[in-house]
Each structure stands twice: as C-alpha cells, then as structure tokens.
Design a protein around this nucleic acid. Sequence first.
RNA 1: GCGCCCGUAGUUCAACGGAUAGAAUGUCAGGCUUCGAACCUGAAGAUAGGGGUUCGAUUCCCUUCGGGCGCACCA
Length: 585
Amino acid sequence: MTLYEAILAELADAIESSISDQSIQIDSAIFETPPNATLGDIAFPCFSLAKSLKKNPVQIARDITNAIHEKTSPLIARTEAKGAYVNFFLSAKTVASKTLAVTLFDPLHEIKKKKRTPIVLEYVSPNTNKPLHLGHVRNAFLGDSIARLLECTGTKVHKTCLVNDRGIHICKSMVAYQHGIKGTGLKGQGMPTPKTENKKGDHFVGEYYVRFETMAKKDPAMQDAAAECLKKWEANDTRTRILWKKMNAWVLKGFDNTFKELGISFDKTYYESAIYNQGRDLIHAAFKKGIFKKDETGAVIAPLEQYKLPDKVLLRKDGTSIYITQDIYLAYTRAKDFNNSPTLYVVGSEQDTYFNQLFQILKIMGFEGAQNLVHVSYGMVNLPEGRMKSREGTVVDADDLIEELKGMAYEILDAREEKLSKKEREKRTHTIALAALKYYILEVNSSSDMIFNPKESISFHGRTGPYILYTYARLKSILRKSHAKEELLKKQKNSHYSWTAEKNLLLLLAQFSFIVEHAAHGHNPAAVAKYLYQVAKTTNEYYHENPVLNASPNDRNARLALVAATAQTLRKGLSLLGISVLEKM
RNA sequence: GCGCCCGUAGUUCAACGGAUAGAAUGUCAGGCUUCGAACCUGAAGAUAGGGGUUCGAUUCCCUUCGGGCGCACCA
C-alpha cells in the first residue's frame, strides 16, 4: 500500500465507522481531490452510498460530517459537508510526519518491494535506410520511460529492439549509392563514405534513399533495379551482401550515436535479416493442422472474419515469408529467450489492426503467451501542416532537433554572467535540451496524436522540462546555502507544520508513489509528467511567499526538510521520465 | 465502401460519469536593494451541431458535419 492509499484507507475507516450500516465497505478509489483547495484537502462523494443507504446523498454527507470529530483520527483536522460531498481537512502535522518520513528517505520504497513478473519490451524498431525522426523519438522516450516506471515498481524489464535491416527500402539506398558507378572493386575503393563526406552514417545513407526517390521519378528503371537488388540479396549474392553489410553498419553506428544522445539503450537487439525467413515452418505446421488456409492463388492466409478482423496473408503464393511471418517467429523466439515473459510492443496506433491480427493469429496457433501480449499503442506526431512525409522532406530529424535545442539552451546559458568550463557547459546544454524534449513529448497522453510545431513548440518557459529542472536547481541552491546536515533534516519529520502553504506541497508529495504505481500499471508516463509540473509549480508559489533561510529557527529547519523532500521527489520523478537533473543551471 | 481513433480558449495540452471544464503559451496589467525573474501575481478567453440515457454528460448511446489512420502477397 502506498502512502497516499494509507491516508485514503484511514479516511475510509472513519467514514465506515460513522455510518450505522456496518456492512458497507468504502472503496478508497472513489475519493477525489476537491476542485478548489479552499473546499478541503480530500473529498468523498456520497452519491454511491445513496442507493444502499436509501437516503439523499446531501443528507448522507451531512450525517457523516456530524459523526466524524477530531477524535476519530489524528489525520483529520475537521470535515465539512458541501452538497453531496464530505470534505476532509487534514492535519498538517500528521500529513507532514507521514510524508517526510517517506520522502526524505526513499519516496518509492514501498512500491519496489513487491515481487513482480518480468516483462519484455519491444520499442523503436527502426528501418536502416534513413536517420531517426521525431516519430522514433516519441517511441524511444515512451518505451524508455515505461521501462523505468516498471523497473521502479520492482519489475525486471528486458528492453528489446527489432531492427528492420532488410527489404526493398534498404535496396533503394544501395541502388542509389551504386548508381552511375561501375567497376569499383569489392571493397568499394574510391567510393564516398561517411568518413570522406564527414557525415553521420545514417544521414549519409539516408541521403541516398532520398536521391533514389528523386531519380525514380524520372527513371522508372530505378524501381526495377531495386527489385533486382532485393532478389540478389535474397539469393545471397556476395557483392550485394557486402555492400548491404557495409551500409547497414554505417547506419547502425549512426543510430548508436543518436540513442546515446537520447539516453536510450537496449538489452537485446533482434535483426530482421536474421529471422525474416524462419517463421515458415511454424506457418506450415499450423496449416497442416487446418488452422490456416490457402487462397485460390496458393498463398497461406489466416481467416480472421469470425474475429471481426481482415484476413491476413502469412506466406506469399511463392512460399516466401512476409513481415508478419517473422513477427510470429519472433514471438516464439522471444518467449524462449525470456522465459515466456509478458511482452509489451510499443508501436504506433497506425498498426492497431495489425497487432490485433498478430495477437489473434498467435492465439489460434496456440501460442502459450498470447494472452500476455500487449500493444502499447501511441498516437502519431504530426506537423502543423499535417503528417510528416519523408518524400516531401517534412520529417523532423532527431539529430537536428537535439542540436537546435542545445543551441537554444546554450544561448540562455551564455547570456548569464557565470563562467563555465567547456565540459560543464556541454553537460548543462545537453541536460536542458533533453529535458525540454522528453518532457514535451511525455507530457502528452501517449495514446493521443500530437502536433509538433518545430518553430513554436519547444520552449523553456512554463509547463516544460527546464522549468522543473530550474525549480530543482533553486531548491538545491537553498539547501547548499543553508549548510544544513542531511541527518538534521531527516529529524525534522515531526516538525510542527500548520501553514496551509506547506500542507499543499506535503499533500502532493504524499501522492508520489501512488501516482507512480498507477502510471507504471497503466504504461502512462504522462501522469508522472503532469504530477511533477504540479509539484514544481506549487514549490515555486511556496518559496516565493515563504522565506526558508531567513525564517525563525524552528520554521527554518522544518522548511529545509520540506525543501529537501521536494527536491528528492522531483529528482526521482524526473528520472522516471529519463530526465537528469542539474545541481546548478 | 467497411473498421478503428479524434473534434475542448487564438495555439498546444488536461479533466475515474461528479462540485465553478483546469494548465501552459500568446495578448493585456503588475512584481527583482528580498533564499536564482528559465520565477511570481492578476485580467480576458473554450466542450463542432442536433437528439437521447442519467440525480448529474467534455466523458456513455444515436445522428449530422469535419479531420486522421487502417482495410498490401510493403516493412
């Protein structure tokens, strides 16, 4: 049980003991936060009791309020009935001692003690023909944050990536690269490389992909050349394979750099080229059992009409495999690799139908873990003018975006008096830039589409990552100037907090583990992001009004403890979003 | 055509079926001799239209209009 749940449970007990019908159980989930802090700290709506008690909910609220008094629980300072609501005003002192006892030490201690089943996560899964773009960035941040959330609840997460490193799209880059150059040796002496062009490998290859598209518009033979290249690749043609390997290596090296910049890592990477051909036996076996059918052309299909899904082709009429063939195979492989752990696929919502098909097919094939596969579907990132289209050059490149944000952070840092070492300046610009981007993306509910306006969207003011970083840095600054010992602050948990300003912040801090657990369970980093903004905003309001260092000695220590607890919560919460903090900024 | 998703301040985002629909940004008006102004205070500003269900609807159902995404022997 988290701290906040314990508080709610205590209120639920108080309500239960105040009503005559002892058989009624109060579910703590129905407590609410009043729309306005002046109404109370926690609200209990009485509508649900109206039926069982056969009374007007307004009257019930009045009765409960009359029956609860200060002796009922040390947590409750007073109660007020307002309409059908019982509004609880909590004792600041009790909330403070409960909250600080937890947050000053380890805010998430309670929830990480539970033993939970390990989980496999698949995310990002890029193609190796062009650089990563904003869509991949959303995917990467979501997957990474979901992994962090699950990990902090005590769940072991195996982060996996499926690299789509073969197919016609890669062949297009290869064809464009070779175009017009005949007779070069196997090692490609004299050909441009990322090194000779001084370009990141994925950008280098991506340019050839773009070049292919422009050339193909004028010369239809290019498409045939790409198809020919794919055939050769599948036939294991040496020259083709060597070039493919070389270009893939460039791209993957580029990806590594970008992932490193983004702070993303994987435990295991699967390559499509290594598995794409291996699902056929599974399909054949299932076909023999009569689970799948052949259509009139001879292709193997999964009939899914009874599940209200479109039928799905599993093997081409020539017997070769397609994308889903390997995904089926991968499900079995991964189950073996990770001991049948439940699997989360973090993939865009445009593939909702595809994953319904995949999971249904695995189910009818009798795949053991089929019930434990979840498509974590996230919305598209659109531009103000619509969808990002690589052919029209409207994609937002991940590397460019990071550089632009770093530039903005640098300008602000540069405008300050403080002289920084090169290393420190780089650390700060990077941290601030990534905080802005991660917060901007994670703060939106993941299932929603979002619009990204490159010119206006990212700012460092208001509801942003840098705002929260800034709040943290100021808190740390206060703590530094106080010269207070940590041990001293930890003793402050029993201080007398009686001011409403502190209580707002304390109540928020009390909710931290509660919020985190729900966010982890719901695969929903946005809940944490929103919460952290609330904490930062409340903190700013608080120390703007209430001096800490210049307060009376008793208040000073109590307030310093609150500052320490808040900083701790912000740091921990940000880390769940993959955002690092700065002690100074 | 069939299926899924979405229409909330100028803009970008919130709101377990619950109290006066919240923020941010932009606009306007204020606040640095005061722990860091990447901050704080205040003002104006919104549920696409029409029906229903409910004590109560931004939320659920029907419908109209407007967007997006699927319905590949592409990956």
